[in-house]
Design a protein around this nucleic acid. Structure first.
Ligand SMILES: NC(=O)c1ccc[n+]([C@@H]2O[C@H](COP(=O)([O-])OP(=O)(O)OC[C@H]3O[C@@H](n4cnc5c(N)ncnc54)[C@H](O)[C@@H]3O)[C@@H](O)[C@H]2O)c1
Ligand SMILES: NC(=O)c1ccc[n+]([C@@H]2O[C@H](COP(=O)([O-])OP(=O)(O)OC[C@H]3O[C@@H](n4cnc5c(N)ncnc54)[C@H](O)[C@@H]3O)[C@@H](O)[C@H]2O)c1
Lengths: 209, 209
DNA sequence: ATAAAGTTGTTAAAATATTAACATTGTTTA
DNA sequence: TAAACAATGTTAATATTTTAACAACTTTAT
């Protein structure tokens, strides 16, 4: 299995490659990728080595083929269905953002407990009541869930979706979730992010004295 | 300077400690913190050692004092002013979320280029037109910016805010930004996050065969 | 033809982060 | 009073991630 950090970068390589392809470019050197993403060319080459793709010395990497190779690693062939739970400000922002983007990861349903939000389309995604959670997860073969709901309900809902078959969670609530060992959990904590930036801003000030 | 990962955890320890204080708890053991955050007690103790705080063998750590110690490290005494640039769906979600939370990191202004959004309060924060960017940054001594604007404008705006004095950036656009070496840049890429979860979900499936 | 330049692929080293080991210390209990 | 226990604090070992070094190859220039 590939290192976590390599996976993250592969996602970024692919986006960059698609942008370069758009501009009509056919081949790209490791140092070009590196400059555009602010990495080192060594790291780029090493990652590409790890996934078993090869370029040529004179032309670098063929953009189409590299995109294809990365996609064969990141994407599930048959696609992967996901849901958003919690259609508040953040949930809506996310579903609006993803709506219409063609992608192997489809957001096929949303859930909320607030009946003012349920039973209708919200930014292109049907919003169900959480009471339908288990039914829909099984029906639509959901394997990934994005949590953007009120923190109080996060663990409860997590237990339910895992029991219903969800295998990966992207958690935006600040709640440290308990999940079964075979469920992949990725947390993003915005407050921590900001506090970290603030800390390094402060430290930098100290350094410059 | 403390390791980046330790800083992230300190932010989480503090939140947890505040929650426990709320519940009337006065002391806490490293293993209690560990269980609640899904870490190991060793890691907790090591982090606390690194910041130079000590507990007692029988009672563990004094919650109030530890909060104070962590705060002395994370927070800037005189506070730190920040802005959000781009009051679209995500920007609004963020400012709504932070509004009213008493915090050493204050979001004191927002910016957008769309005149339908500027010149008024949006979720408690005044939204200026980007043409006022430099003026307000200097006037309000802004050192931290949250970028939630359209990707096309991200680098341009970044150059401007850095020139005006911003020292830390939390970047939600997927654009790999160019910043001066004395500016701390933290990127969060939601697409990468989701693709990573999807990858590990897929791999787990393979393992289980 | 041969050398020079420039690039990839890969192994080795260094840096960073986590985990384990254990000495130390205060408290309880026999 | 001393042994057992349960916790912290710290050093050492391990694991992961990044960076450096360099061999191998291809094209171009001399
Ligand atoms: N918006 C941000 O910038 C931000 C930052 C950090 C953390 N968060 C976290 O992300 C989550 C969402 O944030 P938000 O700003 O969108 O909050 P929000 O209050 O706007 O939305 C929360 C939504 O969750 C729904 N909900 C509540 N209980 C539910 C349940 N049991 N099942 C399904 N839905 C339920 C509510 O009806 C509401 O629509 C929260 O946990 C918040 O703490 C948000
Ligand atoms: N919403 C998400 O879930 C999500 C996920 C991944 C990435 N992002 C990125 O985050 C950013 C914001 O996303 P969003 O969903 O809020 O988009 P959005 O389109 O709703 O909002 C973008 C806002 O930026 C403003 N803007 C454009 N040019 C500007 C400029 N020069 N100065 C100031 N403001 C300007 C627009 O007027 C708009 O209000 C985008 O770059 C997007 O790619 C968002």
């Amino acid at each position: 299995m590939l290192p976590e950090k390599t996976i993250e970068r592969l996602s970024q390589y692919r986006r960059l490659l698609l942008a370069n392809k758009q501009k009509g470019k056919e081949n790209i050197f490791s140092h070009e990728i590196a400059v555009q993403l602010h990495l080192t060319s060594v790291q780029v080459r090493r990652d590409i080595m790890l996934i078993g793709y090869s370029g040529t010395q004179r032309k670098g990497y063929n953009i189409d083929l590299l995109i294809e190779k990365i996609s064969s690693i990141l994407d599930d062939e048959k696609g992967l269905n996901s849901i958003i739970i919690g259609m508040g400000n953040l949930g809506k922002a996310i579903s609006t953002y993803f709506y219409g983007k063609r992608n192997k990861i489809d957001i096929v349903a949303a859930f909320d407990i607030d009946i003012k939000k349920t039973g209708r389309l919200i930014s292109g995604v049907w919003c169900y009541h959480t009471s339908d959670l288990e039914t829909i997860i099984k029906e639509k073969q959901i394997s990934l869930a994005i949590l953007a709901l009120a923190p109080e309900a996060a663990q409860d809902i997590t237990d339910r979706i895992i029991f219903a078959g969800v295998k990966g969670i992207l958690n935006f609530t600040s709640v440290p979730l308990n999940v079964l060992p075979n469920v992949y959990l990725e947390n993003y904590d915005m407050v921590t992010s900001i506090e970290k930036v603030a800390y390094f801003v402060k430290e930098n000030h100290l350094q410059n004295r």
